[in-house]
Write a protein that binds this DNA or RNA. Structure first.
Lengths: 130, 130
DNA sequence: ATAACTGCAAATCTTTTGCTTACAG
DNA sequence: CTGTAAGCAAAAGATTTGCAGTTAT
């Protein structure tokens, strides 16, 4: 793997937030000003195909861009608040159970799972109608 | 509601498949050749905001377009086969249970849920490595 | 040498917007 | 009348691609 790719992977792994391609590029450029947008996209495609990262839409809460995160041991749900834009995560054994059930009952071989929820977070429920 | 909107809603409701905006426009034009792309998009936005339709990405199996379907009583999972492109649906009480659990434990008020799975359908598992 | 990676610029694709006219309540 | 809807054309935004030069195996 090349230095540029290592840099990108490192950024994704270290990031506490979910990055979109533009932001990833922006951060990467602080360390390598010459890195190009195309390289970012090509690397993301590669990592996605290898199953090293997950791609999210976060309910298109902010346009059509995609967000990325390093694959974790445990799949989790992403909740996006339509009011404040906060993204929360949620993992549970019920989720794992549901996945197993899907495989068992449909015979589908799961490679990627995405569970996204849109709505209002606890704080935004008081005082907002949207 | 105007005639054009009624037409679009009717098409979405009657369609057995998941429609993207372009296809919806194409179908609508058979009955009203003057309908415009912008009208389709504006209507979709309106229906989405009113919670009458759900928007899907189907794991971006075919580019970045969005797919739409009339909201059903029961939320269901969409499984997209990376090989043959088939889209399958799956609803179960476990899914409903998971939703309830999320609400209960996180206090998040759910407005929309999207559970998408990418992988290989039963038929495509034999004989393919992708 | 051969294959994979990169930058650059241009192209693509889907979705959105501004503006003007037409229609509905 | 006054607000909403529609057509048209252009804009916007994210992602992809062709090509030529570079680097790594």
């Amino acid at each position: 793997m090349t230095a540029q790719r290592r840099l990108l992977v490192g950024i994704i792994q270290d990031s506490p937030r979910h990055l979109d391609a533009a932001r990833l590029l922006e951060i990467a450029r602080k360390q390598d000003p010459d890195i190009d947008r195309a390289t970012v996209y090509r690397t993301l495609a590669l990592l996605k195909n290898r199953g090293l990262i997950d791609e999210l839409d976060l309910m298109h809460i902010e346009g059509e861009k995609h967000y990325y995160e390093a694959k974790t041991n445990r799949d989790h749900c992403h909740m996006a608040c339509f009011r404040c834009g906060a993204i929360m995560e949620y993992a549970s054994s019920s989720f794992e159970k549901l996945k197993k059930e899907i495989v068992k009952q449909s015979g589908f071989q799961i490679r990627v799972v995405r569970l996204e929820v849109g709505g209002f977070c606890k704080r935004c429920q008081k005082g907002s109608t949207l």
